[in-house]
Amino acid sequence: MKHKFNIYAMGQDTVTAEFDGVKPIQLKRIASHLKRFFDRDIDVLALNQSLTLFEKNCTARLDELHTFLSTLEVEEVLTPKCWELPVKYEGIDLDILAEKLKMTTEELIALHQSRTYTIEGFGFLPGFFYIGSLPKALQIPRKSTPALRVPKRSVAIAGTQTGIYPIESSGGWYVLGELAFDLFDPDEEPPVAIDIGDEVRFKAIDSAEFEQMRAQNLKGIQLQERLLCSR
């Protein structure tokens, strides 16, 4: 592998490999190579340029894993999936955030939709992904006091990232709006179709469109087809 990495164990059943300068989609590719190494569907968490394997006694194979990763060739150019996520931008923090960022709410909403983002990792809650990177003008530290209740489907920003709350939770991110669909469904397989390295665009919808989509309540493959970007 061209990229430098550092690999270490955390107890018997957990190994983390931290990489230097890999793209999220390359992390996803490395994760799929690791499944080949173990010859089965292992549990891998991709987060901040690192992969963590949760696998019984995987620490015993640390040296082998190091050799495997050292010799691995990861493609530089990979084509990600792209998803277009419909958002009703009427979030509770919209006005206060616009004021803090010294812009109008209209400018804020337009700026949030102005680029194509990348899924950088999972964490925090089931089906919560970190989506980066926000334009400089939208970057703001998380709230000093977290809100006790951030509603389900909230689209919120903090730091360099956007996050979507799959369930109601406490949280310190600024809520811009609400997504029209549920992306995480524990009764579906896979429970979430969007993966690390995928691209994401946000698209503003009005209340009527939002209500119509909520009523549709698409799931599984129908939801995936509805959200895939038209190229």
């Binding site: 994760a31 549990d43 968490l45 991709a46 949760f54 999972f122 964490g123 089931p126 089906g127 979430v192």
Partner: peptide
């Protein structure tokens, strides 16, 4: 619940 920590499940 084993096998789903990669998608954030405890």
């Amino acid at each position: 619940r084993y096998g789903y920590r990669g998608i954030g499940v405890a």
